[in-house]
Design a protein around this nucleic acid. Sequence first.
DNA 1: AAAATAAGTAAAGCTCGCTTTACACCTCGG
DNA 2: CCGAGGTGTAAAGCGAGCTTTACTTATTTT
Lengths: 67, 67
Amino acid sequence: MTNRIAELRKERKISQAELADAVDVTRQTIISLESGRYNASLLLAHRIAKYFGLTIEEVFLFEEGEV
Amino acid sequence: MTNRIAELRKERKISQAELADAVDVTRQTIISLESGRYNASLLLAHRIAKYFGLTIEEVFLFEEGEV
DNA sequence: AAAATAAGTAAAGCTCGCTTTACACCTCGG
DNA sequence: CCGAGGTGTAAAGCGAGCTTTACTTATTTT
């Protein structure tokens, strides 16, 4: 699974700290998500998608045949 | 957050064991999700939604102002 | 009546999601 | 030149997500 967080964030000229604040997690969490260190929880994924005005499926990309 | 797993499963006359198998988790996991003991991970949510032919947002219901 | 199928509960154990703290590197404005 | 803002890494710690095993209860089938 990959995600478009960094991409969407840059598009809108938002810093990691701003996004972290807006979705109520630490900056470390945003960094870890962007760098693919781990996956967001369902609730966090929802808050991020909502923040960008998109659906979860538009922000988080699930590859075919993914475990 | 609530979900429509039990509802969708009954609609389609699928047992917990069948669903568990299809999305590659144990039956305990399905029971726990249905009874709200905890939330699915993003990947599992995606597999379940896909199994039902729906989006994550259609299966998992996020209430307003949810943490 | 016995057996099979479906649903539920409980508890121990491991890994992953997220936090906290602290430090490093770059770039840009004053 | 120096400090501030933005991004990155590292490591310890806690709780959530999921597994495994085992037992219970109800309904259906033979």
